[in-house]
Design a binder for these strands. Structure first.
Length: 520
RNA sequence: GCCGCCAUCGUCUAGAGGCCUAGGACAUCACCCUUUCAAGGUGAAGAUCGCGGGUUCGAAUCCCGCUGGCGGUACCA
């Protein structure tokens, strides 16, 4: 809200500039959300630029992964390699002549120079500097030399790079919108390569060049870039361009506070969240909680913010100047909570649609089964991630094996369990034949009456029958699950009878086989 | 090594000199509700505001120093 410099005129334009490494990094998603929030708030534009200047790192399909990730999160761009725009191309590998001309011009201006030093020589130079405890820095052997002159010296290669001539005096001050002014001595920065021998630019040339060419008004990037900003400012200065406003954002980090890596945490990839059954709105909510405070109009205490909010709220309340600069550990517990909330907020039809692919992956082919909707409705408030759904509902569709010992509830023995189950059998038959029909309320009434007759008075005692007791295990094969009577209604009388019969046989075996060790 | 960034409960944060006996959320624990599990409700525990100096009547908030963590120091981004 207070972060548009006076020098900027025209619409605000921000860009996400990921390099196509094969997946969308969660840090890129964080940046993209921040960009979108800022751009939308100022009715500006969000642009996607692919920084594919490293041929060694080429990964096929990597661009698609970036598009997929951003689209999944609902973060849309108005210009990019796929949709075009007035300032294209938006793929740096398609802008090579531009960078080459720029590098050449910098050389002509005396702000850059050719360097024919071989990687081996540079390597050796660095080793010597390290041994002498000097800061590693290019020794400017090639500076001011023609190719013919340089060729006489050792460590020469045919194909030169272009190096930026960094001033050996003065300092660069960055007016960081998040961190305030940052000052760095120019002399500490070496003559960085800006054009590689293969004709590709490095980030240090391509990024500032394109930010200017694409009329970017605000650079947002991770804090790992702070120390190379003076290099980029040199480029702007050499061409007489006004540098954009700039903000170095906090990093998403590993639990040990190091730079996040997919080695340590699979959630470095945005696609992981989709595959684990997180909802994009929950991920947006989570990332948003790391960069914005959304006030709660219903809370008289203004110091208490809302925890649940959406992209619209983020856009409305985003304030770049108030983004906290420290690194953020990804807290999956918090995300799980948010995701559970998002799942509960879904209409049942939406939930079914979203769960469908997870059912298929789990080879539970029940998408067309009429039991799916009521079963999922029961599990909806119990699952935290969509991935848990198949396991949560599978027993509605198939009889599953379980340990016979589970049929014996706490505080009872196998004979008692058998007794409870036999009596239940009769109750089930009565309800099935009764005029109220096979409905949860009828089942509940019947079983409450049965519990009374069996002397199960307290809730705990009734638990032996229905809570986590014989009936639940007999019917579902598990000790935990959704409300029993509703589960039984969905299952239908035939399935319930069949499973109870099976349980009866298992229990009979248990009771006769292990009389002596019945008490648990 | 050098340069830079960062520093409030385990985590994310509120806090812009007196409202702070440091507030909230997640996670944890207990209780309530209850047929189990959830969901929901209530409560507890959890931070000598990294440390040490200043400035001030008064500092988590301002200044200086230190420490620690991280990042950068590539023909990677």
């Amino acid at each position: 809200m207070s972060t548009i410099p006076d020098t900027v005129s025209g619409p605000v334009r921000l860009r996400l500039a990921p390099s196509p490494t094969g997946f969308l990094h969660i840090g890129s998603a964080f940046l993209a959300l921040l960009d979108v929030a800022f751009a939308k708030q100022h009715r500006g534009q969000f642009i996607l630029r692919i920084e594919d200047t490293d041929q060694k790192r080429f990964v096929a399909e990597a661009e698609e992964a970036i598009y997929d990730g951003l689209r999944w999160l609902g973060l849309e761009w108005s210009e990019g390699p796929d949709v075009g725009g007035d300032y294209g191309p938006y793929r740096q590998s398609e802008r090579l002549p531009l960078y080459q001309a720029a590098a050449e011009e910098l050389v002509k201006m005396g702000r850059a120079y050719y360097c024919w030093c071989s990687p081996e020589r540079l390597d050796q130079m660095r080793r010597e500097q390290q041994a002498r405890k000097l800061p590693p820095k290019y020794d400017r052997l090639c500076l001011g030399k023609t190719e013919a002159e340089r060729k006489q010296l050792p460590g020469y290669t045919e194909r030169p790079v272009v190096r930026l001539l960094m001033p050996s005096e003065g300092q660069t001050t960055i007016d960081d919108l998040i961190r305030g002014p940052i000052t760095i001595e120019n002399a500490l920065i070496q003559d960085t390569v800006i054009l590689k021998s293969d004709g590709y630019p490095t980030y240090h040339l391509a990024a500032p060049y394109d930010d200017h060419a694409m009329r970017i008004t605000h650079i947002t990037r991770g804090e790992e870039w702070i120390s190379s900003t003076p290099i980029h400012w040199q480029i702007f200065d050499a061409f007489g361009w006004e540098p954009p406003a700039i903000a170095h954002t906090p990093l998403l980090i590993n639990a040990d506070r190091s730079k996040i890596s997919k080695r340590k945490h699979p959630w470095a990839k945005v696609s992981w969240f989709r595959d684990e059954g997180y909802l994009p709105e929950a991920v947006i909510n989570y990332l948003g909680s790391l960069m914005v405070h959304v006030p709660d109009p219903n809370n008289p205490d203004p110091s208490i913010d809302r925890d649940i909010f959406g992209l619209d709220d983020i856009v409305r309340h985003f304030d770049l100047g108030r983004v906290d600069p420290s690194g953020k550990i990804v807290d999956l517990d918090k995300l799980n909570w948010l995701n559970g909330h998002s799942i509960r907020a879904l209409e049942i039809g939406e939930l079914i649609d979203k769960v469908r692919p997870f059912l298929e992956t789990a080879r539970l082919h029940v998408a067309g089964d009429p039991k799916l909707a009521p079963a999922l409705a029961l599990e909806q408030e119990r699952i935290k991630r969509l991935k848990e759904a198949p396991e949560a509902v599978s027993f509605f569709f198939r009889d599953e094996d379980y340990d016979a010992k589970l049929l014996v509830p706490r505080g009872a023995d196998a004979n008692r369990a058998l007794e409870l189950l036999r009596a239940s059998m009769q109750t089930v038959e009565e309800v099935a034949a009764g005029e109220t029909g096979w409905k949860a309320p009828a089942l509940e009434a019947a079983f409450r009456a049965l519990a009374e007759r069996l002397g199960l008075k307290t809730g705990k005692e009734r638990g032996q029958l229905i809570g986590a007791g014989v009936m639940r295990v007999a019917v579902t094969g598990r000790t935990v699950g959704p409300p029993l009577f509703e589960t039984m209604e969905i299952l239908g009388a035939d399935t319930v009878r069949r499973r109870m019969q099976a349980a009866l046989e298992m229990l009979a075996g248990l009771a006769s086989g292990a009389q002596r060790s019945a008490v648990r």
